[in-house]
């Protein structure tokens, strides 16, 4: 950890001003990722801007359009257990509760969840090449141990995956990210918030330095009737997803009116393929149709020495989770597979 300075700010304007003071000034909220990155020199800061006191960012409010606004500083736990979220957006609640541990969910904030960095081993080991940490140095994972790495949307520069569970649900729910910056406010559809690595793997998302996330909006449709979150990993809890799936359906007389499927643990961002969701519309919610949708989603997927299994695993996970969404009560603590 380097010897950064520290300031607490109490409103968004002050936060933006402080962050803009220097490219190496960084915002901290829950601190569950950045403090660790700082501690072990994976990232450096000149000044840490503590945005926790900003009251306006810490709430959950109902919006006029029937949606709900999640404050960026509201904690993951408070969000998951909020009665509105549990009732109207249970997919989000389940996905949050599948992530990290109870302690970390008590600390981590909604904005911070979007900002967390990859868990790639090589990103964290500062003695190995990593284009995300040190642009131009190379990607060690491609020819290294890549069990946890991407099968979709990766580039020859980076095969890291984005580790969030919450964001997989936010992607499925068509959330919107509200951002405040030196040039005022702007909104980004969730799908446009995170980036693919392409030539610039050091950029995880489209937030510009000096901007802060103020809140995340959920549209009115929460898919509270038919939803499921499934997380597959190397132990039952407190570990990152190898593959996770968020599925949500609006059913009408036994056919799918509206479908959402998002994958986690497979790409540099939550992975959604609208074509697959369109395919399911007006179809029956059968294993065969879900399998077909999975094929569309995984079109173009390719793996490496240690993560090839993810392609088949994702295919099966999509099918299972879509079937689970028909019986949401089949979900188990920790987003384990149904019995």
């Amino acid at each position: 950890m380097n010897n950064f300075s520290y300031i607490k700010v109490s409103d968004a304007k002050q936060a933006i001003a402080e962050l803009n003071g220097d490219i190496r000034n960084k915002a901290v909220a829950g601190g569950t990722n950045i403090n660790d990155l700082l501690k072990y020199f994976v990232t450096k800061a000149d000044k840490l801007v503590d945005i926790n006191p900003i009251q306006e960012f810490n709430s959950i409010i109902r919006l006029d359009d029937g949606g709900v606004r999640l404050g960026a500083l509201h904690t993951n736990a408070d969000t998951a257990y909020d009665p509105i979220i549990e009732e109207r957006y249970p997919l989000l609640s389940k996905a949050i509760l599948a992530g990290a541990s109870a302690q970390i969910r008590n600390m981590a904030t909604n904005g911070g969840n979007l900002m967390q960095r990859t868990r790639c081993y090589y990103f964290y080991d500062i003695s190995t090449p990593c284009n995300k940490r040190d642009p131009g140095s190379g990607c060690s994972a491609i020819s290294g141990y890549n069990r946890i790495h991407a099968i979709l949307g990766q580039s020859e520069n980076c095969i890291a995956v984005f580790p969030s569970d919450m964001c997989v649900a936010l992607a499925a729910l068509n959330a919107q990210v509200n951002i405040s910056g030196p040039n005022g406010e702007r909104k980004l559809p969730f799908a446009n918030f995170h980036r693919l690595p392409s030539e610039t793997p050091h950029l995880d998302n489209n937030l510009i330095h000096g901007e802060v996330i103020t809140s995340i909006d959920l549209p009115a449709e929460g898919f509270a009737e038919n939803y499921s979150y499934l997380k597959l990993r190397d132990r039952s809890s407190y570990s990152f997803a190898l593959v996770s799936v968020a599925s949500a359906f609006e059913l009408e007389q036994g056919t799918i009116k509206n479908a959402r499927i998002a994958l986690g643990g497979v790409a540099h961002k939550p992975w959604r393929v609208l074509e697959a969701e369109d395919f399911l519309k007006q179809k029956e919610p059968t294993r065969e149709n879900f399998s077909q949708a999975a094929k569309i989603i995984l079109n173009g997927a390719f793996g490496y020495e240690h993560n090839n299994f993810k392609i088949e695993l994702a295919h099966r996970a999509i099918i299972r989770n879509c079937l689970m969404a028909l019986y949401p009560e089949s979900q188990r603590p920790g987003a384990k597979p149904s019995r």
Binding site: Y6, V28, G31, D36, L48, D50, I104, N106, M107
Partner: peptide, 10 residues
């Protein structure tokens, strides 16, 4: 919470 990920100043 986890005290190892918490800066005391915060």
């Amino acid at each position: 919470i986890l005290s190892c990920l918490t800066l005391a100043v915060m």
